[in-house]
Amino acid sequence: MIAGVAPAARLFAALVLVTAIAALRHPMAQGVALIGAFVLVLLAGRPPAVLLHRLRHVEGFLVLLLVMLPFTVEGTSLVAIGPLDASAEGLWRAFGIVMKVNAAAALLFALIGDLDPVRLGHAARRLGVPLRLVQVFVFTARYVDLFRDEIRRLREAMRARAFTAGTSLHAFRSYGNMAGMVLVRALERAKRVEEAMRCRAFDGRLPAIGPPESRAGAAACTAMALVAAGTLLALDLMP
């Protein structure tokens, strides 16, 4: 359903909805946003297993924040552990943040998670992101896999020379040299890439050639996102 919609409209919808979610304060609105986001993931036909894997990582940032919130927010006492006092208000705050963060992550996964960098980059250009930034983004995305392989080969070479990862000066020096080596090779590659581009009539200007995108469903997608964001904000203001 979502896969056919123009990427620029999907990116705009994601921006609107994530901003609305970030503004929510009421647990009911936050819960509705979370359920809505999960429903959207299912409707979009995106694999829930991949989403759960992602959410587990997102939760890493929250642990520190959330474990402390119940103890730092003043309010009705729930449990007391020695001098520490967990408040109901603090627990609700923490729970609310978990719902918001997960709702936003699920929403992004549903709306833009299946776009490849080229399509996302040119969608961002339609929304006003400068062309040069988009060009660097598309170029970078193309080279990431290549340098991942390069680093993998270098680390294999290190292991073949009996390098073991650990906390030692030698290990840090090896990582530093590895980073330096990859950078040296990258600079040489950049020079070759530029030469190759010049051979193909690159005169220092890059045209903005994006993939052809249909405009299908763009208006409907934008309208639905605005209505959904408005509904969430209205729910949030309800007593």
């Binding site: 660097v136 990862a165 650990g166 020079k191 530029e194 890059l206």
Partner: peptide, 25 residues
Amino acid sequence: LEEERIPETAILAAVFFTVSLVAVP
């Protein structure tokens, strides 16, 4: 950022990104 330097900048950005993915113990 001159347009000419976009390939080089992007290739270095790719290196910085991939090196930051390495888990350093």
